[in-house]
Amino acid sequence: MTDETAKQAQQTVLSERLAVLRKNKAFIVGAAILCFWALSAIFGKLIARYDQDFMDYEYINSAPSGKYWFGTDSNGRDVYSRVIIGSRIILVISFLATLLGAFLGASLGLAAGYLKGKFDMVLMRILEAISAIPVIIIALLAVAAIGRSSSIITILIIGFIFTPNVARTVRAAVLGESELEYVAAAKLRTEKTAHILFREVLPNVLPTLIVEFTVRLGYAIFAVATLSFLGAGLEAGSPDWGTQVADTWSLIFTNVWWPTLFPSLAIASVAVSINLISDALLEVFEL
């Protein structure tokens, strides 16, 4: 066999891998659900049928119907419209928080993994201490300390709390990579540390980072929803899903389940869709 055919054989491996992704039903389902919510987040007002604050006093706690698909809450607001519009808040906050955590975590992880030594030791101790406290608890502590809650604060808190996890994952990957001889080879052509770190090591750590990002995004949804449910996440009265559940769930004992169930399902579907995607990526990258 010639080298040319060897090359072709390898290319089929690549396309076979992509086929794995296309054939992965879980991935397709996850991507479809996430796309739906992403569209809702962008075009929320267009898809919604009423304004999120419009109150119909004739329809208080009314069950799902042709007029109000998901029913109305105790203020007579359309649950369907609030669920659709609420998607923007949780998706944007979770995404930005994860982005912040991934950026900080990746920077610290790269530095710690490559520089090793004292910097690594001190940093790892601090990160370990931070992650010794459950995410929700440390977030609540931060909210109490700051004295108020808002989207920006939630983004910052969750971003900071996720930093240790991302940093640890990236550090472990970098440690593994820097053992490999291509790093020695780069040193043997007089490359600077920054070049080795960003041009040689980082591209190899990227798949790990991408998967870690999607996993964290799932957790961010989890954390943002929980915080707002506990009343410590967002501005009061926001159409956010967690807040909706918090405001309405005591009604389920009177059999008014719709204002609670639909935002709950929305949270579940987003979280699950992201999980399905990260699971599939894990398989494709063969991590």
């Binding site: 989890f222 559940v245 169930l261 709950s264 979280a271 699950v272």
Partner: peptide, 17 residues
């Protein structure tokens, strides 16, 4: 794993329901 990423309060509310 899908069940694990759904927040506890959602499960709690659905279970009570």
């Amino acid at each position: 794993l899908s069940a694990a990423v759904i927040p506890e309060f959602v499960w709690a509310v659905v279970l009570i329901l």
